[in-house]
Computed example of a mutant assay.
Amino acid sequence: MSKKILAVDDSASIRQLVAFTLRGAGYQVTEAVDGQDGLQKAKSERFDLIFTDQNMPRMDGLTLIRSLRTLPQYASTPILMLTTESSAEMKAQGKAVRATGWLVKPFDPPKLIEVVRKVIG
């Protein structure tokens, strides 16, 4: 059975690029339009990995991660930030909410697949 990944980003083009890249590598991908949508989908379905952007309406990525980490099923699930934010301060905030890793947009599709394989196989 293929691994299930949730891609949370308010940019439709980024979500589509992430989904296209990961589906091409054999993963099942569900898309969410912002943090609130992502949280709802994560509560109704179990994912092996979650990608989230930081800057989104209704709920940002750090808030989403903080919320997910309170749920037993996501206490140790890999959650990767995929964002344009690259400051040390922002990365420190990501670490504080227990983000698994940090990728900066624009991303290189082969590199994205490499990271996913490292994290969930």
Rank of each mutant, 00 (worst) to 15 (best):
M1T: 14
M1I: 13
M1N: 12
S2H: 12
S2R: 14
K3A: 10
K4S: 13
K4H: 13
K4T: 10
D10H: 04
A12G: 11
S13N: 13
S13K: 11
S13Y: 12
S13L: 13
I14S: 02
I14H: 00
I14Y: 00
L17F: 09
F20M: 14
T21M: 01
T21N: 03
L22A: 02
R23H: 10
G24P: 09
G26C: 06
G26R: 05
G26A: 06
Y27E: 08
Y27H: 06
Q28G: 10
V29H: 00
T30I: 13
E31L: 11
A32W: 00
V33P: 03
Q36Y: 09
D37C: 06
D37R: 05
G38T: 02
G38L: 01
G38C: 03
Q40N: 14
K41Y: 05
A42E: 01
R46I: 10
R46F: 09
F47Y: 13
D48C: 07
D48E: 11
D48F: 08
F51A: 04
D53K: 03
D53H: 04
D53A: 08
Q54C: 14
Q54W: 11
N55F: 10
N55Q: 14
M56H: 03
P57Q: 06
P57N: 07
P57F: 04
R58V: 14
R58Q: 14
M59I: 03
M59D: 01
D60N: 14
D60Q: 09
G61T: 01
G61L: 02
L62W: 07
T63G: 14
T63D: 15
T63I: 10
L64K: 02
R66T: 14
R66H: 13
L68T: 01
L68F: 05
L68R: 03
T70S: 15
Q73Y: 11
Y74Q: 05
A75H: 11
A75W: 07
S76C: 11
T77Y: 07
T77V: 14
P78I: 06
P78H: 07
I79M: 06
L80E: 04
T83D: 03
T84E: 10
E85I: 06
S86N: 15
S86F: 12
S87I: 09
S87L: 10
E89S: 15
E89H: 13
M90P: 07
M90N: 11
A92Q: 14
G94T: 02
G94L: 01
G94V: 03
K95S: 13
K95Q: 15
V97N: 05
V97T: 05
R98I: 10
R98H: 15
T100P: 08
G101E: 04
G101H: 05
L103A: 09
V104E: 06
V104G: 05
F107W: 04
F107C: 06
D108H: 15
P110E: 07
P110S: 07
P110K: 06
P110H: 08
I113T: 12
I113E: 05
I113C: 08
K118G: 15
V119P: 02
V119I: 12
I120Y: 03
